[in-house]
Design a protein around this nucleic acid. Structure first.
Lengths: 386, 386
DNA sequence: CCGCATGTGTGTAACGATACACAAAAAGTC
DNA sequence: GACTTTTTGTGTATCGTTACACACATGCGG
């Protein structure tokens, strides 16, 4: 009965006529209230109210003015990750803070891991982008650059035309690696995915045939779900840090390697388990592998606190204690790290979100662009080898 | 040196000319790829690539087509709340899931508690709104209705023109209230804010002079920070459920009251502490008041698990045990509830987010609109009175 | 009383795309 | 082969606003 009548949009011109002023006066009354007299503004508001004018059409405004009032955020993960992953959430909180401060809306571009992602970026009505770390070969990054809008990327990849914000992951990994590997004989690493294929696997450290630079290539493929459970290709055992296309993962692996080889250790004897996601449950399953058998690790460096917590769960199921049976480190100093006595790398992802957003919006001095952010090693029980 | 040249935007007409086709063909190539031949589409893509055409201008597209590809989300809290509050985050995850499924971007409207919030809503370039519970007198709700766009509100207030999704908070509060108050002699309630002023206070249950209906009025005022620390007005002691302008808070207070008075108890002897925010630390401070002194509570019903966890912290500081010294209940069955043995109301905020978003986007059958969502009482140790 | 800054109102010309209607060619259909 | 249907390409006319340039009035110092 009360079916909503598809009421035609009231236009600015109609408001102008009703208020007895010009269209421009109405426009100014909304866009630059100081530009018109109090009286005219009141007349306009009154007429708008009476006619049910909902305010300037955002699309028309953005077409004409070139501004949208939106800050775009692109995650190199499924859209829900922004709310599901604790670290991403802290980062986003910082971004949101800046948006609120500047009256900008925050637009999350829907990334699903499919080929349409590029179109979603292209279609995004935003004034600038903040990008959460993704793979070097992610076509979404190219799409962002192609828009020509200001963009800041957190974690990587580095790219001409993108401001870059990240901690020195390699140095931090060396620091925490030294801590967790000290006195160890059979070290292990629990890693984030190596590339966009996101296959979980188990192996040992390996070096490339030829040394390589910063960037490594990989078969661009697949979305998020496509992790083939068993790779029947060539020996899946050798895990080469330089081959990872995620800059953060690559740098942390390199740092762990440096830490171990720096004390005379052999990288090819380090067990490396790769998770397909940043989840405690998967980490728990992989940790069970690392912690059992003839090569059971007596030190595990995990790339994230979530993963480390999974390791702790596996340990308690196996009747192992930390640091009695093995040492353990995490990363990010999440809320659960302190109660668990977990040695970790602390960095304020919230501050980094703030810095990224400010840079994207151009409110940060140019000198502050392309900046490295601080980190701290936090020593706790989990690396206090008896 | 490599200063970014402010390159003029390439237009569709230029691409059309370069590709040797009409403008409409280019438009179709982007908007309805099936509408043009493979060959024409390839020519267009090639020309676009060559000219650096970033794809159709989103503003122009939205002006002409009337669609934006954005789902708007409005929180009755500061924007950062979407990422800081665990419950809001779960809800948002559901919303994000639906957005991803439909290729819609998710736009968070920047709410700060200031007078500009209304403008931010009006300016939002979205196709529909999802609204997270707010106060009955929040002008933002009127602004949303005024846009005429489809909108779904979660938790309240109910409003003509808004679809409504919520659990039966009152019935759930009765259920959990009976559980936590069973055998109690000095019950207490730890409540969310009563109205937009968000003042924290301590008092006893009170009834209004005249009975009132669903809606209560209150002085529309203030933003989030404006909590006057001490209210020197008329007796701040009487806390009347019907006077709360937050529907969720109101219904839960009523339910707690019903649970207590239903067993012959006197509502005016129930201690009520009101938090200004949903945070464990503030709850901890207020709980210390509830749990000490001659009227120390032997049962506390908290409106959220966060608040209940604060109560537990206060208890452990005071050397009190649960349920030995007092019973306790929370709400929402958050991750920490089970380990803490906390009796609580479980409801899937993620599912509710999904339902809200689907309804807003019009993909849910009309019959499913205006729906109540399920809840469950989860009994745990915290109400097992010895 | 001039010169100049400031405040306020107006008209015109885009901004860059898509809805719509139509035409021509290609493909079935009996 | 005449007919209908589908596929594909093309103009034209807006969509609703704001940038810009200009006009006029007012205020103020000299």
């Amino acid at each position: 009965m009360s079916g909503r009548t598809a009421r035609r949009r009231v236009t600015m011109a109609e408001v102008a006529r009703a208020a007895g002023v010009s269209v421009m006066t109405v426009s100014y009354a909304y866009g630059q209230p100081g530009r018109v007299s109090d009286e005219a503004r009141a007349r306009v508001r009154e007429a708008a109210e009476r006619l049910g004018y909902p305010g300037p059409h955002p699309g028309a405004r953005s077409l004409r003015s070139g501004r949208t009032g939106n800050l775009g955020v692109v995650l190199g993960e499924h859209l829900t990750y922004a709310f599901d992953d604790p670290q991403a959430t802290r980062f986003m909180s910082g971004v949101a803070q800046v948006c609120a401060d500047h009256g900008m809306a925050l637009t999350l571009v829907p990334i699903t891991g499919g080929p349409a992602d590029v179109d979603r970026v292209t279609e995004a009505a935003v004034d600038a982008f903040v990008v959460w770390t993704t793979a070097d070969d992610d076509p979404v990054v190219d799409a962002i650059v192609a828009t020509g809008l200001p963009a800041v990327i957190h974690g990587g990849p580095r790219r001409e035309g993108l401001s870059f914000v990240a901690a020195d992951d390699r140095a931090a990994a060396v620091a925490v690696g030294r801590e967790v590997f000290a006195g160890a004989r059979r070290p292990g690493v629990l890693s984030f995915p190596l590339d966009r294929a996101r296959v979980s696997r188990l192996g040992f450290g390996a070096s490339p045939a030829h040394t390589s630079g910063e960037v490594a290539s990989s078969p661009a493929s697949a979305g998020f779900g496509g992790a083939a459970p068993s790779d029947t290709g060539p020996s899946p055992e050798g895990i080469d840090p330089d081959a990872s296309t995620f800059r953060v993962t690559r740098q942390r692996l390199r740092g762990y390697r440096d830490a171990w080889t720096g004390t005379g250790g052999d990288w090819s004897r380090v067990r490396v388990a790769v998770c397909s996601t940043n989840s405690a449950s998967e980490a728990e399953a992989l940790a069970a592998e690392l912690l059992t058998g003839p090569h059971a690790c007596d030190a595990v460096a995990a790339m994230g606190d979530e993963l480390a917590l999974g390791v702790l769960r596996a340990a308690s199921r196996l009747g192992l204690t930390v640091p009695g049976d093995f040492t353990l480190s995490g990363w990010d100093d999440s809320a659960a790290a302190a109660p668990a006595g977990l040695t970790t790398i602390a960095q304020s992802l919230r501050d980094q979100g703030i810095r990224c957003a400010r840079t994207a919006l151009g409110v940060l001095a140019p000198a502050d662009r392309d900046s490295e952010v601080p980190w701290t090693l936090i020593r706790r029980e989990s690396t206090r080898r008896p």
